[in-house]
Amino acid sequence: MPSFLFYLFAAITLGFGLNVILARNPVTSALSLAVSFVGLAALFISLDAYFIGIIQILVYTGAVMVLFLFIIMLLDIQKEEAKRANTAAVIGGVVLAVVLTLQVAAVLGVFKEGAVTTEQRALSMEVASKREDVAQVKTIQKDLAAGTLPDAKLMGMTLFEQYGFHLQAIGLLLLVGTVGVVVLSKRESPGKPVV
């Protein structure tokens, strides 16, 4: 990936991320977050994680952020009430963020293992096509042999062969989530007589 594209998308991610915090209007915040997530998705794709990148856009930008917007609109929250933000909280938040960023920078300073480029750790479809686990799934092997990265297929293989148990657990979690949403947002039925 060319450097300037990385910087562009990083700037989009962080810049709009910053705007989420700065914007007075919740709608602006939500839309900024959506854009920030698109930038993030681009970064995922630049890391050859196509499937994750797409999911990020589909789930986060497409569903989660829309849900946020929907709720903001539904509740008709215009902007934060007039009173100024708590100064202590602002200072605390800024200090926390700066310290954390500096700490990350410091850690990265000694994290020599991280000073590698994608080229130095290039993926090799040819080597991959000879893997044992890949050999069992013909379509993946074919794609790899053809020199393309079948990211979604590999993802599927991993999920269903290694993480089948977790997938079901997640299913249970989604069920609980659904039940929870129903429980928490149903209204008192108007026709019901008051006892």
């Binding site: 657990a169 249970l172 979690l173 609980v176 989530g177 039940v179 929870g180 429980v183 928490l184």
Partner: peptide, 10 residues
């Protein structure tokens, strides 16, 4: 852990 946590939210 998240299964537990989400259930607790509810």
């Amino acid at each position: 852990l998240e299964l537990v946590t989400v259930s607790f939210y509810v």
